[in-house]
Design a protein around this nucleic acid. Sequence first.
DNA 1: ACCGGGACCTGGAAGC
DNA 2: TGCTTCCAGGTCCCGG
Length: 282
Amino acid sequence: MPELPEVEVVRLGLAAHAVGTVIERVEVLHPRPVRRHPGGGAAFQADLVGRRVTDARRRGKYLWLPLDDCDALVAHLGMSGQFLVQTPDAPAERNLRLRFGLSTGTELRFVDQRMFGGVWLSAGGAELPAEIAHIGLDPMDPDFDPAAVNRRIRRSASGIKRQLLNQTLVSGIGNIYADEALWQARLHSERPGTRLTRTEVANLLDQVQAVMSAALSQGGTSFDSLYVNINGQSGYFDRSLHAYGREAQPCDRCGTPIRRIEFMNRSSYFCPACQRPPRGRR
DNA sequence: ACCGGGACCTGGAAGC
DNA sequence: TGCTTCCAGGTCCCGG
């Protein structure tokens, strides 16, 4: 469940079901999801068993569970990672990669089809894992500084969408919410930061926060069973999308068909009338 | 010191 | 019914 609202849904689930429990059993069913743990699967298991989870935190799309000794279990869902809370005897999911037996008697499972996601133990990482210190604050963070981000955006000639996706600048935004915020702000994804006004960028950042808050209140966005909360339930913000995935459908503002263009080996969706491309592009 | 592009993966859907 | 191609909510690391 990749972008910030979906990861926050998972964080809330972990806060409710994992915090306060002891990890009594760890099973590594595939090595790839623990590739970032020093020593791999066997070390991961040995290092984690017996530790108590004290909190569930998030920055951008990264999650971490501080443990009772100032280390932390860090997790990223990648493109397709899920955390599910199950009874231990529930049948194994397709693409089940990790099992964590908790002292409450339930089992936390990490399921990940594409395995871009993963988990690892971060030494001393309870406050902020060193491995994610380069990740910028996300728009939900009380210390998020929109004025500073605004200045940095307007200092770079990179296209505005590429900048929104730069997790060191501002974290948590992915392909869906970038397209949605740009649609709300009526900005084309390829507008260079240096050609935007402070007001335009300020409004865009407001739209980012608004669309993410709205998505969170609806349990996140999911088009299929790949994106679910820890109880396996889908969010329904997909019904509220105005641009993402809506190629050829009429713009909800002006009726012009939404267009799809290639961008970084993926897609950008926009209204060609409301979001006019910069000069020299189309 | 920045960029943009490709690599890393699996599997569902669509096309032939 | 196959087989092939395309596509996917992300991040990192490499050249230039």
